[in-house]
Amino acid sequence: MRTSPPVWAEAILRTFLKAESFPNVSGDLLEQYRDSILPARGLLRADRWYVSHVFGFVLRGALPWAALFAGAAVARNTLDWLNPATDYHARALTSTALAVSILLVAGFWTAWRSGSFLAGAVTGLSASTVAAGLTILGNAVLLASSFGIDPAQGSGGLDELFHLPLMLILPGMAVCSIGGFLGAGARRFSRAL
């Protein structure tokens, strides 16, 4: 019988943790998996335990970036509602640049820590997904608390509030992946010097 957790889950953990922390942190998880979880719960539930804790590490790391991203998106919608403009070009440019910067830095930072090119993609997917949820929640609160304000007077109406955050998940992952490539490359370059 297999006595190790799923290889793919361990690979995700490796891409996400600081390179210096991976051996001891993954060792702690592996020790607990083999020593107490697997004998008590069986293979399937032990694997589920392991995977859930790997995602716990990933989400914990992605949450600050997701909160920043969602905060910027909700702030933009609030501005559009409270102070409608005739031309949204400048605002769109600013908020897009801010969102791209947040994701690039997130990808760069996690890849710099772990040394893995894939860290950006993992961070991008998790941060963008969590950010989409937070943005939709924030927009719903905004909508519920803004009686008398027509969401259509913003730049994109209801679609922008509830569909756009979901549509940004994959582009967000792509941008974060670019940051990841830059971060992992910079780490390797700095070590080579």
């Binding site: 190790s4 051996p23 993954s26 060792g27 702690d28 083999r34 020593d35």
Partner: peptide, 9 residues
């Protein structure tokens, strides 16, 4: 230790 696949504590 062996149970940790040799990974350090």
């Amino acid at each position: 230790t062996p149970i940790r696949a040799g990974r350090p504590r």
